[in-house]
């Protein structure tokens, strides 16, 4: 892969007092402008992996390079963090200010950006997540999905090259989940930003270019979603369920119907079944 944005070289990390390491010998490269989903159940090391990507966690052995900068280098810390932005699970605990636009302005203010440019960045970031109309609202009065979109705008205003979302929908209702996911997909489509989405919802991975499945601190599977999801038995062995669409196709196949397993979206799946019925 030429010039990847993030490289992990044999990264290992164990939390103090933990029995098993959270990450053991992970090597990965994340290509620029790609949409990578990282999947795994609780304790698989996926959150630790996310935290390695912008130096919240510095590996005990191996190294992480962001744009060629080693995350262990304290002098380059700000450069790493402004390159890779991070959105967390709980929207309440990452909003700093009492007014939406002031919160979005937080990162550029920290970077010492001139006031007029901050204003421009804030307005653009809020428009991109569809929250411009709420710029003067108080965050605690917004819904979970709206708060999480404000948090995403807060990262966008920093103008990072890569955005890492660590289970951004885990605390949201279905409506909020949909809002946040469509905002994430828009990011990719319109700005070509590198997106790393950490999740345990299968459906959220369907639109990714690449799917990494984590298990016990290691990479268990790695490939395009249409290559990974058909491996239904393997995924089940890892304690993961496959998306509803794949599940349906899999059951139909077992019942003797000749269907492909790589129709991941609902539309694809429906049309494949329709084709079979027609023929």
């Amino acid at each position: 892969m030429d010039n990847p944005i993030i490289q992990l070289e044999n990264v290992s990390y164990a939390y103090p007092d933990a029995e098993a390491p959270a990450l053991s010998g992970v090597s990965l490269e994340i290509a620029r402008r790609s949409f990578v989903a990282v999947l795994g159940h609780n304790g698989s090391g996926k959150s630790t992996l996310a935290k390695c990507l912008n130096a919240i966690v510095v590996p005990q052995s191996g190294r992480v390079l962001v744009n060629g900068l080693d995350t262990a280098d304290e002098d380059k810390l700000l450069d790493v963090r402004r390159t890779v932005g991070m959105v967390f699970q709980n929207p309440d605990n990452q909003i700093v200010a009492s007014v939406v636009e002031d919160d979005v302005a937080f990162a550029p203010e920290n970077l010492g950006v001139p006031p007029t440019e901050i204003r421009a960045r804030v307005d653009e970031a809020l428009r991109r997540v569809g929250m411009y109309g709420y710029r003067l609202h108080a965050p605690h009065l917004l819904s979970g999905g709206q708060k999480q979109r404000v948090a995403i705008a807060g990262v966008l205003a920093m103008q990072p090259q890569c955005i890492v979302l660590d289970e951004p929908t885990a605390m949201l209702d279905p409506v909020g989940r949909r809002e946040v996911l469509s905002a994430v997909r828009d990011l990719r489509r319109h700005s070509g930003m590198t997106v790393v989405l950490i999740t345990h919802h299968m459906e959220e991975c369907v639109y990714a270019d690449r799917l990494i499945v984590m298990e016990k601190g290691r990479v268990a599977m790695d490939g395009a979603p249409r290559e990974v999801f058909p491996r239904v038995e393997e995924l089940r062995a890892l304690g993961l369920t496959v998306p509803e669409t794949v599940n349906l196709l899999h059951q139909l196949r077992e019942a003797g119907w000749d269907l492909p397993l790589d129709a991941l979206t609902v539309e694809d799946c429906a049309s494949k079944i329709a084709e079979l019925i027609v023929s």
């Binding site: 963090r81 002031d102 006031p115």
Partner: peptide, 19 residues
């Protein structure tokens, strides 16, 4: 952690959007 991720490193060198 979230503040650190958004490059907060104390008051030094900060600017403000609203003057």
């Amino acid at each position: 952690t979230a503040m650190e991720c958004r490059c907060y490193s104390g008051g030094e060198g900060r600017t403000r959007m609203k003057q």
